[in-house]
Simulated assay, not measured.
Amino acid sequence: MTERLSNGGPPLDDDHTPPWGRNGIGRYFEWAAAKKKAFDAPYDVAVLRARRAALIGLTYEEYTLEILERGRYLGTGDVERIAEIKRHRPIRY
């Protein structure tokens, strides 16, 4: 049995799909820049969001997405919405 060694480069198999998909780059970089801009907040705002997120058991990303998507600042009284966000987390192994 031969082992394949990897130099850390991209896979050479046909199964490899680049981050922007199989149909060309399109708007991939525009979306990436927009996402970065949405999550880049001034330091004080980012620290405040991170602290509030930690208090209610969410990540910074989850808390910020809730603000961006729904315009709501979650608190300890939003038990149902927080539980729903946690249910949609990817499974970690």
Rank of each mutant, 00 (worst) to 15 (best):
M1A: 13
M1G: 14
T2L: 11
T2G: 08
T2W: 14
R4F: 15
L5V: 14
S6G: 07
N7K: 15
G9S: 15
L12M: 11
D13W: 13
T17R: 11
P18M: 01
P18I: 02
P19A: 12
P19D: 09
G24S: 08
G26N: 14
Y28Q: 06
E30M: 05
W31M: 04
W31S: 04
A33L: 07
A34R: 11
A34N: 10
A34Q: 11
A34H: 10
K35P: 00
K36F: 09
K36R: 09
K37M: 10
A38G: 06
A38Y: 08
F39P: 03
D44W: 10
D44Y: 08
D44S: 14
D44Q: 12
V45A: 09
A46L: 05
A46D: 14
V47G: 01
V47M: 09
L48S: 12
R49N: 15
A50H: 11
R51K: 12
R52W: 05
R52M: 08
R52L: 09
R52T: 07
A53F: 08
A54S: 13
L55D: 14
L55F: 01
I56Q: 11
T59D: 06
T59A: 02
T59G: 05
Y60E: 12
Y60S: 05
Y60L: 06
Y63C: 03
Y63I: 01
T64V: 15
T64K: 09
T64I: 12
L65E: 08
L65P: 00
E69P: 02
E69D: 12
R70N: 12
G71N: 02
Y73A: 03
Y73K: 03
L74G: 03
G75H: 05
G75L: 02
T76H: 02
T76C: 00
T76P: 04
G77F: 03
D78A: 00
R81D: 01
R81L: 02
R81T: 06
I85T: 04
K86R: 11
K86D: 03
K86G: 01
R87Y: 00
H88E: 08
H88D: 05
R89T: 05
R89S: 04
R89H: 06
P90Y: 13
I91C: 00
R92E: 05
Y93P: 06
